[in-house]
Design a protein around this nucleic acid. Structure first.
Lengths: 150, 150
DNA sequence: CCATAGAATGCAACAATGTTGCATTTGGAG
DNA sequence: CTCCAAATGCAACATTGTTGCATTCTATGG
């Protein structure tokens, strides 16, 4: 069973509002991409987004536009790139929190972001012990979600 | 300062031995790729490996051969793919242990694998809570290592 | 030692993903 | 309304990864 969509609109709306608060421009393309990500029931690839949005718009959207838009959304923290899949999802966990763990179901594509402060602290401690300063974290777990295990 | 290389040969040798114990064939290409990974001071891309090995061999090694070899080495657990970089390193942590955290320095490429059982348990607990069964984990932290921070 | 079957590799073509540079359009501030 | 900066269009290209099939190698049984 795919991503929980209850309050999809709320999430989308507040994500857009958050960008605006930071002084970022929400253009039609950016809004369309973010909407597509919120509507999708699984991670979407850049070219997949391009095709889908091109259909909707009735004209060809270019790959660079999509990539630039995705870069923007990720910088704003309202989308997340899944490195192990070359795909993207809307970021559903609360703004400003970098400490999220991503579970991705191989069968249905469900992707759940969860926060875990303890885990955060453990990673910070490991980094500290190594003298390592963390810029970016990738924490992706793939497998089978509760519904697909049956 | 790049990957610690003390006992590089030991690690390489025992990795090869471990593959043989499992009944896997260690061919010249496989050994060459694994040796290159152990010798490298940073993660290497597939095409980078191809070029390097082609030079050494005095003939062109094909991309598919490299990819198949890397797949083999990863399946054997003696190499690791870094998803966030499309690159590979030799697996230096102990055999059979999946619970490793990878720190990759953006400046020098140093990549340290560390184990953390507590972290392992936390992730397992999170998965349990979600009813999620984990097949594969990606845990990559990028930033600056102790030497490059200065 | 030789035959043979399965595994590994070579190779060509192709598919998917991501990027660059520059022209054009758009949107907001003055 | 004008102008500037930001965003987008667009073409070409770069990188990364894959497929299918032919060939070579290697371990094994005879």
């Amino acid at each position: 069973m795919p991503r929980a969509k209850a309050s999809s609109d709320d999430g989308l709306t507040s994500a857009i509002a958050a960008c605006r608060l930071r002084g970022a421009q929400i253009t039609p393309l950016r809004e369309a991409v973010l909407t597509a990500l919120w509507s999708a029931e699984r991670p979407l690839g850049a070219y997949e987004l391009r095709d889908q949005l091109s259909d909707e718009a009735g004209r060809q959207i270019s790959a660079p536009s999509i990539y630039r838009t995705l870069d923007f959304l990720c910088e704003q923290g309202v989308a997340v790139r899944i490195e192990s899949r070359n795909a993207y999802i809307a970021c559903t966990h609360r703004e400003g929190d970098q400490a999220c763990v991503l579970f991705v179901c191989n069968a249905c594509g469900l992707s759940s972001e969860i926060e875990n402060k303890k885990l955060e602290r453990l990673l910070a401690a490991d980094a500290e012990a190594l003298g390592f300063s963390i810029d970016h974290r990738v924490l992706e777990l793939s497998g089978s979600c509760a519904d697909c295990r049956r």
